[in-house]
Simulated scan of single mutants.
Amino acid sequence: MNELSLAAVAAPPVRLGNLSAGFADRSVLRQITVEAPAGRVLAIVGPSGCGKSTVLRCINRLHELDEGAFVSGDVSIGAFSAYSPRADVIALRRRVGMVFQRPTPFVTLSVFDNVASGLRAQRRSLPPSELEGLVELALQRAGLWREVVDRLFGSAMALSGGQQQRLCIARALAVQPDVLLLDEPTASLDPMGTQRIEELLYDLRDTVTVIMVTHNMQQAARISDVTAFLLDGRVVECAPTRQLFTTPTDARTEAYITGRFG
């Protein structure tokens, strides 16, 4: 397989409008309105239990799968309204990749087959040469190609934790999503693995819109373009990252980012 050039593609903005969510006996999100700029990184920060992960699960409509769950408001990805009565949920999830806190490679599959799994599900008649090219492209975009090129057909579980997480990102990128959701993607990694994931997310700008949940204030400051601070299910403040971290407009934001609570 040959090296492929990575041409930039248009990425859409993601807008949440008056988004509320929760369960029959409690609210988790309360009229969230926030925008992730096209082709940039939005970091969502806030104390445990404030609703950060629920935001991600609402974007790709996983939240509603839980018993007793409710959602109101809207999520739009470019011109596509995720909660329109005519919305195709399967098509939505093809446009929105998700990576979880702990690496979740398919344990019985090789490195190659992990990345190829989504492609095979979407395009059953994909020629082998095209499949190989798309797998290589995804591994390149995830910064993993050179590390695994000689063991593509070995077990994914033989990779380090950081490599497994980048493999999961490659798997999500393989189907060329418009949006990538990441829920604490470096929480279980060592500093070197964390650095590589952060460099990868920085390099993905322009090609995909990234929305990342993190507890790590330094991480948000390093790699995000916009940061939203959530507290008790509400957006307290959302602003360009440098502005939010240096001149927040709300005293609660300043208290959180300086470590006085949370």
Rank of each mutant, 00 (worst) to 15 (best):
L230Q: 10
N2P: 14
D206C: 10
I211Q: 04
R252S: 07
S20L: 00
Y202C: 01
P47A: 06
R123M: 07
L167Q: 04
Y202H: 09
V213W: 13
S20T: 15
Q122T: 15
G193I: 01
L131Y: 10
V45A: 12
A24R: 04
R30H: 08
Y202K: 14
A91V: 06
Y256W: 05
A79D: 15
G17N: 12
A221H: 11
V75T: 05
V213N: 06
F245D: 08
D150F: 03
T253I: 14
D88E: 12
Q165N: 00
A116C: 09
R57C: 01
C238I: 15
A142D: 02
C238S: 15
I197D: 14
T214H: 12
A172L: 11
T104F: 02
S20M: 05
P103D: 15
G39Q: 00
V75D: 12
P128C: 11
L201A: 12
Q218R: 08
V89L: 07
G73N: 07
L109T: 01
V45K: 11
T207D: 12
C168T: 01
L201E: 05
R93K: 13
G233C: 11
R205H: 10
N60W: 06
A228D: 10
D250K: 00
A239P: 04
R86H: 04
A10Q: 14
E130R: 13
Q176H: 12
L137H: 09
L173S: 12
G262V: 13
I223A: 03
I197L: 14
E184M: 03
A24K: 00
L231W: 14
L144S: 13
L200W: 06
V75F: 06
V55K: 12
G78F: 10
A174T: 12
L131P: 08
R61E: 07
F261C: 07
S72I: 02
T108S: 15
L152V: 09
N18L: 02
C238W: 05
V9P: 09
L42W: 02
P128L: 11
V115H: 09
Q163P: 03
L201D: 11
A156R: 03
V179G: 05
F112I: 15
T241Y: 08
Y83M: 15
V45L: 14
N2L: 02
M217F: 13
L189E: 05
Q163G: 09
L139A: 15
R166I: 03
V208A: 04
R234H: 15
S188M: 06
R40Y: 03
I32D: 06
S129H: 09
S129R: 15
M212D: 10
L109C: 08
R196P: 01
Q176N: 09
A158P: 03
L109G: 07
H215A: 07
L119D: 11
E147H: 05
F106M: 13
L181W: 08
L92V: 01
Q218E: 06
E130M: 13
D66I: 11
Q218N: 00
V14S: 09
Q101V: 07
E147L: 05
R146F: 04
L180Y: 12
